[in-house]
Design a protein around this nucleic acid. Structure first.
Lengths: 154, 154
DNA sequence: CATCGATACATGCAAATGCATCTATCTTGG
DNA sequence: CCAAGATAGATGCATTTGCATGTATCGATG
């Protein structure tokens, strides 16, 4: 049996861990989004282009992308609308599901993602690499992946 | 001297680490902000009350709070305005700096923070505690604190 | 295969956000 | 002590966001 005291301390530990994870994300994100590259395209919109660029098939459903970003379904719908208007991606109806929308980068979208991405990655490296040893980064990577995997499968 | 290959791999590691940290934060935050408690008060507004509740003096400057949240100065200014209108906090002029605004919780604000906080902490524990061992949580806590400390002092 | 609930995405509308700018106060150099 | 630049926070305004809801398609059930 778990004692009350042990439960309380495990709750506290979880809360402190999350708090620290969250604040570190805020601190890093604050710096990153101030990057010069994001004057060309807001970081949230960049993130959608990035997600598409990482996808092997090059196409993703709207709802798949929605799982990766912190936006409501309707906000993402309009964000994508803006990207399409700028000619950075194209919509098409999903072949196997008439309700679904497939998104794919245009050449211009792929190009812009790469340009911003290069600078963005440099900024990330400047913030993260000197803060933690390679070993620590690998451990942080492992732990956050494990956390994410658990939360996703719930 | 650092070789090109070593530099490239360290850059990649930093980028992957950040990406994973960020996505795990998105996944957890998505669940947390869906919590029933945040129908009473949006999570960003709760966060300001929480930050004030943790402060030993009970009072914080607007710009101090701004460092902890991912909001522009003007957005925070108006968020605080909403909280004041709801009677959850009070503004006062900073005694040592006529430009500064000191924020402090009202009794109602303290009470609401505690009520939401209790539920919020439970939700956090349900997501984080089963995902990682206590040892892993302590390590994640340590690493994110270290990252945050480095980024803050830059 | 007709119906009914569920799912995917779009849209009207009110609220929140950020940028640029404004005012007031502080700080510094002469 | 004064002027000039810096800093804290407020505000006008255009953009973005989310909630509620709408439309279309899908899937299961009788």
């Amino acid at each position: 049996m778990t004692t009350k005291a042990a439960t309380s301390s495990s709750v506290r530990l979880a809360a402190e861990t999350w708090e620290s994870l969250f604040r570190s994300q805020v601190a890093v994100m604050r710096r990153l989004q101030a990057g010069k590259a994001f004057k060309r395209l807001p970081i949230k919109e960049y993130d959608v282009l990035f997600t598409l660029s990482r996808c092997p098939t090059g196409k993703l459903r709207l709802n798949e992308i929605n799982d990766h970003v912190l936006l409501s379904q309707s906000s993402l719908s309009r964000l994508v609308e803006r990207l399409e208007k700028r000619g950075l991606l194209e919509r098409s109806v999903a072949p196997d599901d008439g309700r679904g929308i497939l998104l794919g980068l245009t050449d211009a979208g792929r190009e812009l993602q790469k340009e911003i991405g290069r600078e963005h990655v440099r900024d990330i490296a400047e913030l993260v690499a000197p803060a933690l040893t390679a070993e620590e980064q690998r451990e942080l990577l492992r732990l956050t992946e494990k956390l994410q995997a658990f939360v996703a499968g719930k």
